[in-house]
């Protein structure tokens, strides 16, 4: 399934493979989704109910990296899938402020919650681009897949 609303905001989606996987909801956002949470949005501000796993709450790339380090992720070089590892990607705008996060799935594609819009499966390139898209991928992190 495709989405006109998404393709207007993210023109690269038209030229890449993607699929819509959920209805719209404001209940959670991209960072929460990357962390595997879907009942509250994550963002480093003090306003409730926005959650952040550590203090201080700063809207910066180092702060996002640090937050996901608390979840066991470490910076890695490649966005290619690796056996026994799961990866997340952090997008930033032209000021290096984080705009978005995506999580890799086993196929090597990525899953994202696009703000209050739908969850999609996509390529990293699909959400890149200038405003209103999410800028560029500035950092990829990985952690060992936890035994269930």
């Amino acid at each position: 399934m495709q989405s006109v609303s998404l393709e207007i905001r993210f023109p690269n989606l038209r030229n890449t493979t993607y699929s819509v996987e959920s209805p719209r909801t404001p209940d959670y956002n991209c960072v929460a989704w990357a962390a595997g949470v879907c009942d509250r949005p994550w963002w480093p501000i003090s306003q409730r109910p926005y959650y952040w796993p550590e203090e201080p709450r700063i809207e910066s790339l180092p702060a996002f990296i640090s937050a996901f380090q608390t979840l066991g992720y470490q910076i890695c070089e490649s966005s290619n899938p690796e056996v026994a590892f799961e990866k997340v990607a952090i997008y930033v705008d032209e000021d290096e402020i984080p705009t978005h996060m995506a999580r890799q799935i086993s196929s090597g594609d990525w899953t994202s919650k696009c703000g209050d819009l739908e969850d999609i499966i996509h390529t990293l390139e699909g959400l890149q681009g200038s405003y209103q898209a999410y800028g560029k991928v500035a950092c990829v992190m990985k952690r060992p897949i936890l035994a269930k």
Partner: peptide
């Protein structure tokens, strides 16, 4: 204008 943004800021 903002429904695609995750940033509450």
């Amino acid at each position: 204008d903002t429904e695609m943004f995750s940033s509450p800021t």
